[in-house]
Design a protein around this nucleic acid. Structure first.
Lengths: 209, 209
DNA sequence: GTATTATGAATGAAGG
DNA sequence: CCTTCATTCATAATAC
């Protein structure tokens, strides 16, 4: 909406069109702008940091790991790579999976881990996860392959799963909460301050681009 | 904050201290504020959406699956079946877990559920499961961390590790990660606009909190 | 380089 | 409680 000179009766002024503000108003206004600027800056920055690599085709998106001990420096992406089995380990694991058909007991896990640690860095969790995933994968594969497939165009079975939650929309000021020290404080303050900003101009600032 | 009718009798101020702006400046200013407001609103909203998932003591955070406003369309939302705590809920839960020394009685569960339902859909079962899982997880973590190795001097010299897998041996219980779905585009635009905003007041509007 | 696939990891829920 | 399953996310690997 185009802002008219609703507030300005100035129109009838002589030549100059001017708005007059008190010093106080001016101060408030300036503060608001500063606050907004700060907020936007922080938020944008945050998002930038969060999205290290731009989105893909719009399907999935990347992510970024924030360093826990950073606290000061910019964004250093200290490695946090997932375990990757060495070929040797993989071989052993595969073999165990075949023979020990689907029963990776806890005790076994320890043994296996010990065994595999001789061939590379590994932890029990890795082994555990590996078996879990392996099994799930196998099962899934079978399911898919065994799907009778009913030559018919498979209809959208899931008609309309209503969203279970997400009702947090209407809540008063349900703000986002981050646990991360860096982020959390930043965001919190931002949010708080955002709330405090009061519009000087009653004109609609709610024109979504 | 109340706005007075400054605009009205802008005429020459008598003894008041006033600042004068041209109409053009006023316009610019208002636009800037509007833009800032919009940006902030969007960003905050965005963050809310992004944090619909959860994470905390764990390692990662969230996800988000739907909502493409930019992506043309024909996008059906995949329904979510299992409960996912909202950030607020998670925060509360974590707190309770810490303080409520590991004994979520049935009665407590009800209370907590009531409390949490204020921040999103939730059921007692969810709370119960959450506590159970949380506990189990903690315990597991401890176990793992308390098992540094097989007592054997770690064979760090993994000769056969063709892959640069510098697996983080640490139990890595603190790492924050945000995921950004299709937000990037939005953010980008926002960012662009933010840059377009030019300061009207050359004065110190840069009071960083 | 980008998009796709494979797979390690996290977690809510169910079973015992 | 503890274990197991199913589902999903994130990322290394790989194809394009």
């Amino acid at each position: 909406m185009e802002q008219q000179q609703d507030e300005g009766s100035n129109s009838n002024n002589s030549g100059m069109f001017v708005k007059v503000m008190t010093d106080e108003q001016m101060e408030v206004l300036r503060k608001q702008i500063a606050i907004y600027a700060t907020i936007c800056e922080q938020l944008v920055d945050l998002h930038k940091s969060l999205t290290s690599h731009h989105d893909l085709a719009g399907v999935r998106l990347g992510n970024l790991y924030s360093d826990p001990l950073v606290t000061s420096g910019g964004h250093k992406f200290s490695g946090r790579q997932r375990w990757t089995p060495t070929p040797v380990q993989l071989q052993i694991l595969e073999r165990l999976f075949e023979q020990g058909n689907g029963t990776p007991s806890k005790q076994k896990i320890k043994e296996i881990t010990s065994e595999l640690s001789q061939h590379g860095q590994i932890s029990e969790t890795n082994v555990y996860n590996w078996f879990q995933n392996r099994r799930a994968r196998s099962k899934r594969k079978q399911q898919v392959s065994s799907t009778p497939n009913n030559g018919e165009s498979e209809v959208e079975t899931e008609v309309e799963s209503p969203k279970p939650q997400q009702n947090s929309v209407s809540t008063a000021d349900d703000n986002m909460c981050f646990q991360n020290p860096n982020v959390s404080s930043g965001i919190s303050s931002v949010d708080q301050r955002a709330k405090k900003v009061e519009p000087v101009f009653p004109s609609d600032a709610s024109s979504k681009p």
